[in-house]
Simulated scan of single mutants.
Amino acid sequence: MTAAALRVVRSDLWIDAAFDERLQREPGISLSVFRVRGPSAAAWDLLSQAHVYHVSAAKDELAQEWFVRADLIARCPQLLCVSSSGAGYDTIDVAACTAAGIAVVNQAGGNAASVAEHTFGFILGLSRRMLEGDRRLHRETGYAREDVMGHEVQGRTLGVVGIGHTGRRVAALARAFGMEVIATDPLLAPQEIERRGARPVSFHELLAQSDIVSLHCPRDASTLKMMNAEAFARMKKGALFITTARGGIHDEAALVDALRSGHLAGAGLDVWDREPPPLDHPLLAMDNVYGTFHTAGVTHEARRNVARIAADQIAAFAAGERPPRLVNPEVWPAFEQRRARILG
């Protein structure tokens, strides 16, 4: 293929400088940036000629006009590859891309260390009731230390739902703290789950046996509202629920009920149906809810790593190679035909 022809387009939403710096060193790549709050016509002029569209994975930061759906694909006839800015791809209709012969890549694993650390921050903060203690210290006096007495995590059981890049790092941290780790993952054989540091169990067994349940699975048709009222009821009384996965996998109303009833002792939530959640959200009014604004993977190190991985994948694509983090591998034969036709 002729690498000199490859046109990459991204929006002006924040991205670590490593992305632009890497691509600007490649002689066969041109990079253009459109303003998400600028004139739509200017953006479409760039996108309609793009071969690669690097799109934000943050569904509530990007106007839906710029989501990769069938209508955008129809207006971008030369589009060959869509690159997500993170591990998730909520802003991309993967099925529509596959049908059009467009490769979709993500940056899975690029922020795994940061998300795992954030997860364990939730685990320690909730188990030791640090957040409750901090809030009470700021607003009142005269209470006993025992009023905010928590539990050690040593000897407790952590249930990991999805033991991929992040889940396996969480499992390693948990073992270092002396926890038992169990996991469920429909994409992995039991032997592989064991190799990744957890005892394999079914989803229902995990809910019943875990003192802490932590989600690290993708959001798709099989996981939407997976953590519903029935699932929360299956968890141990006094258990903790944690998610750094994606909003929509847990039912927020059902979680409110499980916490209000006292069945669950607390929750650590980095992801929400709407991000950020409204200030009057009932979960934010609870002292036993540790909430963050989808920042588990937002560290200087993770953002730089993800930007570098994304740029490396695009550079590999420009060189005619198959990118290592291909979300829809079944597209490859159709993709190669389109690449040959469009790029020569």
Rank of each mutant, 00 (worst) to 15 (best):
D16Q: 14
Q78S: 15
R25P: 01
I15R: 14
A253I: 15
R322F: 05
R35Y: 06
Y143N: 12
N288D: 09
E205A: 08
L215W: 01
E252W: 13
G297V: 08
R260K: 14
A315E: 00
G262C: 06
H151M: 10
V148Y: 01
H263L: 09
A239E: 02
A334K: 13
H300Q: 13
P282L: 15
R129C: 04
V170T: 07
A74Y: 11
H250W: 09
I314C: 04
N305G: 03
S30P: 04
I73W: 11
E26T: 11
M179H: 14
L137Q: 11
S222V: 07
H138G: 06
A112M: 04
G297N: 01
Y290Q: 03
V105P: 03
E61P: 00
Q78I: 11
L47Q: 05
A113F: 08
I15G: 05
H165T: 09
V306K: 00
V68S: 07
L188C: 12
A87N: 13
A95N: 09
V55E: 00
L79E: 00
A310L: 15
A183W: 06
R145P: 09
V256F: 06
V160K: 01
I102G: 02
I309R: 01
A319S: 09
G88N: 07
M149P: 00
I242Y: 01
H54S: 15
R199N: 03
I249D: 00
N111Q: 07
R136K: 15
S127E: 03
Q337Y: 08
F19Q: 01
M286W: 15
V115K: 00
Q24S: 14
L224M: 13
G88Y: 03
